[in-house]
Design a protein around this nucleic acid. Structure first.
Length: 423
RNA sequence: GCGGUCAUAGCUUAAUGGUAAAGCUCCUGUCUGUGGCACAGGCGAUGGGAGUUCGAUUCUCCUUGAUCGCCCCA
């Protein structure tokens, strides 16, 4: 068997790091600005955290979570998402005693055992924002705003927020019944998948892309017309915030979440082509007022969002988004001979103390090979430190652009180079 | 979980039922203390397994992986 990554796992190679880091930096700076603190939760949790939290929709937990027994006999899962662990942490550490809302953000690897496809891996990375302990709709607005800001910061242009409300435990079960009975009356015209969904999760029929289901969908009752008073008022205020923030949003009555812990606001940020074609969702979130209780905590309203880093990265690459480059040295220290090599290492440290980045290739012996490397790196200034120089305490500075060389006293070289690269 | 397509060197691509070829990259030398250019050389591949065959990289099957779509999408 060939040594290779496990299906669906991938390396984020040095060439991809500028994109990866750019996303994480954008997330971090925006999170900081909005007063969100970073949290790291373990990659392994008791399986219950997810089976209870995400629960009910058995497909998700049973088929798509990496779950196994430890040597001690505990049933544990690789985290498939970030919201439940954050909520677990909130409950476990009694964060309800902190000023509310508790605002947290995270970024890290997650695991889902699915069929990999473009931009969809089994180990992937997500970042997320979670605001816990606050039911005021302004927090929904803030989560949406900062999620949007992240993509803006990453130079995404044609992005739109799709938003909907899916009610709460008071009004949604009732709506589900209305919806189910509507679809039941049209059952024979639905696609085969939707006939099955009718039993399992009628809300998801609204998500169907089959043409024959489109017309039926169009006539379906909409949840926003069936929200209870509380949910209706909440949603109205969220939209007012979005208006006030001048965020580009559209109401999408078909936007749903399959899980029961979701309540009220749900949203996705999607990219559209010039013609308005939906390119797919980059980021999504919503309110999950029922999760805390499901995990055994006290009733805690909360709202959050999460984005897939790989998906965002792959789109950034097609756009040629400018990335942050690592600091590239402008000086190369070349050495020749054992003595110079030893003393050169020390000089290299002196440059580090002066915070001047210097490239080197101490492993190479020939000056030729070192200069070739310099050329490939596109570095202008080369300090040539050979036997002669090492013995007489000077160094030869070569300007690769002009080929002009001059000698510098060893004890002045750091200072002189500092001035050189300033220009 | 289901279906389509694909798999040759680090990358891009040739070719053949009979020694697998090239460009780029990388390394070395021409140039033993001076880069780019040029020239010469070097490293390096038929994903894995079985079958058909005198002989398989080529044909067949299985497997693994990638990719696209479906299911699902926290």
């Amino acid at each position: 068997m060939k040594i290779q990554t496990i299906t669906g796992m991938h390396d984020i190679l040095p060439a991809d790091q500028p994109y990866f880091q750019k996303v994480n930096k954008a997330v971090e700076s925006i999170a900081n600005y909005y007063g969100f603190s970073k949290i790291e939760t373990p990659i392994l949790e008791f399986a219950e955290v997810f089976s209870k939290g995400v629960g009910v929709a058995t497909d998700i937990v049973e088929k798509e979570t990496y779950t196994f027994k430890t040597k001690g006999g505990d049933l544990v899962s690789l985290r498939p998402e970030g919201t439940a662990p954050v909520m677990r942490s909130y409950v476990e550490h009694g964060m309800h005693n902190l000023p509310q809302p508790v605002k947290l953000w995270y970024s890290g690897p997650f695991f889902r055992h699915e069929r990999p496809q473009a931009g969809r891996f089994r180990q992937f990375h997500q970042f997320g924002f979670e605001a816990l302990g606050e039911q005021n709709p302004s927090i929904d607005g803030q989560i949406i705003q900062m999620s949007y800001d992240v993509l803006k910061e990453l130079s995404f242009k044609n992005i739109t927020i799709e938003v909907n409300s899916i009610g709460d435990s008071e009004c949604r079960p009732y709506f589900k019944k209305i919806l189910a009975s509507y679809f039941k009356s049209k059952k024979s015209s639905l696609c085969s998948d939707c006939q099955r969904r009718l039993k399992e999760n009628p809300l998801r029929i609204l998500d169907c892309k089959e043409e024959k289901c489109q017309t039926i969908k169009a006539g379906a009752p909409q949840i926003i017309d069936h929200l209870c008073e509380n949910c209706h008022a909440h949603f109205k205020q969220v939209l007012e915030f979005l208006d006030e923030l001048e965020l580009p949003y559209t109401l999408n009555p078909y936007l749903v979440r399959g899980l029961d812990y979701y309540t009220k606001t749900v949203f996705e940020i999607v990219e559209k082509t010039e013609e308005g074609q939906n390119q797919g969702s980059l980021l999504g979130g919503g309110r999950y007022d029922n999760l805390a209780k499901t995990l055994g905590g006290r009733d805690t309203p909360a709202c959050g969002s999460a984005g897939g880093i790989e998906r965002i990265m792959s789109l950034m690459k097609t756009r040629e988004v400018k990335t942050v480059k690592a600091v590239e040295p402008k000086i190369f220290l070349a050495q020749l001979g054992q003595l110079a090599k030893r003393k050169g290492l020390k000089l290299f440290e002196e440059f580090r103390d002066a915070k001047i980045p210097v490239a080197e290739s101490f492993s190479k012996d020939s000056l030729r090979a070192q200069l070739r490397t310099v050329n490939k790196m596109g570095i202008r200034w080369v300090l040539i430190f050979g036997q002669k120089e090492a013995l007489e305490d000077f160094i030869t500075l070569r300007d690769m652009e002009t080929g002009v060389q001059k000698e510098i006293k060893l004890n002045k070289v750091v200072k002189e180079m500092k001035n050189k690269i300033k220009k």
